[in-house]
Amino acid sequence: METKGLNSPGYEIPDDVKGAVAITTIDRIYNWGRRSSVWPLMFGLACCAIEMIATAAGRYDFSRFGMEVMRPSPRQADLMLVSGTVTKKMAPTIVRLYNQMPEPKYVVAMGACASGGGPFKEGYNVVSGVDKLIPVDVYIPGCPPTPQALINGLIKLQEKIDGQHWKDTRWYREGDLAAIPIPMLGPDLIYQEQIPAIKEASKEA
């Protein structure tokens, strides 16, 4: 966002303090700060990770959007770019990483596999999209999405951040944020919330 937008909340600034004072809303400055420093988790799952690296490299360079600081530790990251096929064996780790990220946090599902399973959807070890495990903010189609598509998706995420109001955000609500239950690896992937249903079904069988 340009500083022009930041400085025009609709109030008249007296002439004598113009240039020394900026009046803005909390939402605007808060969102502006966050959207300009979205630090992604250094986290590559599959093919899309290569395009993510290409986007980070010189030619496309997503540091122009304040995103070049890739953090290998989830504790320092704001954005999880799920770049590739989510497998069942990897599912518990992905949920754990998401739980370890501090709020505010965002998830971008990059590519067909992360969005819905992609070409490997029917595979026995493939989760049909990362949204089966964690909430997703932006989906980027493509197999893999080109760097242009990824940048477009990240701009969409910035637009989403721009539209947020600090009063409604989940991390300023009362009480602790519930961690997402981590699925278990059993005879197949076991979703915690489905345990009663599985139990019921096995009784009938």
Binding site: M184, G186, D188, Y191, I198, K199, S202
Partner: peptide, 25 residues
């Protein structure tokens, strides 16, 4: 959508008589 046909709405399948509460990873 294939999920619609699957009883758990996901790409999973559990063996008969499987009790998730007794399962020890």
């Amino acid at each position: 959508r294939a999920e619609a046909q699957n009883p758990y709405g996901a790409n999973v399948k559990y063996p008969d008589q499987f009790d998730p509460e007794k399962w020890v990873p």
